[in-house]
């Protein structure tokens, strides 16, 4: 299943993606997150040490997390700021931490956390606005390490057809 999380208020983008995926017969779900209550990560470490796997912040992110751990692909649509994704987009990434456990290992020569679940979710990013795209591509690749998965790439909203071709 392809999970698309739209943190922008532009629903035309998700409408385009939805109709394209429907046409292709690919299973997907779109979450319009701009209308949801999603806090930033407060770094309390409860999801690792006090309530393993559960975030201490009880807001709308919990329903998203439950879907992420079952999705084959997660695509975040984000506005941009300061050459990067904006804080709403970044909060979606920051709040994934419960999918990792506290326990550590070395993977490809670097420290990493063991994942809590067996299923792996590849991640892609769609940017609405100007940004340092090369940096974002590098960053999304690094971010995918937290899912023990791979980056599906970073695209602008002007390349939706190309993006939907990657959604499977």
């Amino acid at each position: 299943m392809v999970l698309i999380i739209n943190t922008t208020s532009d629903t035309d983008v998700t409408a385009k993606i939805g109709s394209s995926l429907k046409e292709k017969g690919r299973p997907f779900e779109i979450i319009e997150a701009s209308t949801l209550k999603i806090s930033h990560c407060i770094g309390c470490n409860y999801c690792w040490l006090k309530t393993p796997g559960e975030c201490s912040i009880k807001d709308d992110y919990e329903q998203i997390l439950k879907k992420i751990i079952k999705a084959d692909q997660m695509w975040v649509i984000s506005d941009t700021a300061l050459g990067f994704i904006d804080h709403k987009g970044k909060n979606i990434y920051d709040r994934i931490i419960p999918i990792a456990t506290m326990n550590l290992k070395f993977k490809n020569g670097q420290m990493r956390h063991y994942l809590r679940y067996d299923h792996k979710t590849d991640i892609g990013l769609i940017c609405n606005g100007e940004a340092d795209m090369d940096q974002l591509r590098k960053w999304n690749e690094r971010a995918a390490l937290n899912f023990d998965s791979k980056s599906l790439g970073v695209y602008g909203t002007d390349r939706i057809e190309e993006v939907t071709a990657c959604m499977c």
């Binding site: 690792w48 796997g53 079952k70």
Partner: peptide, 26 residues
């Protein structure tokens, strides 16, 4: 050592579940 240390902290914080607990199933 590290695993035991994390488990100790976890217990001190009142956790009753293993650190690799899966609250949402699989």
């Amino acid at each position: 050592v590290a695993r035991k240390s994390f488990e100790k902290i976890s217990k001190e914080w009142g956790c009753t579940k293993p650190l690799d607990y899966r609250p949402y199933g699989t």
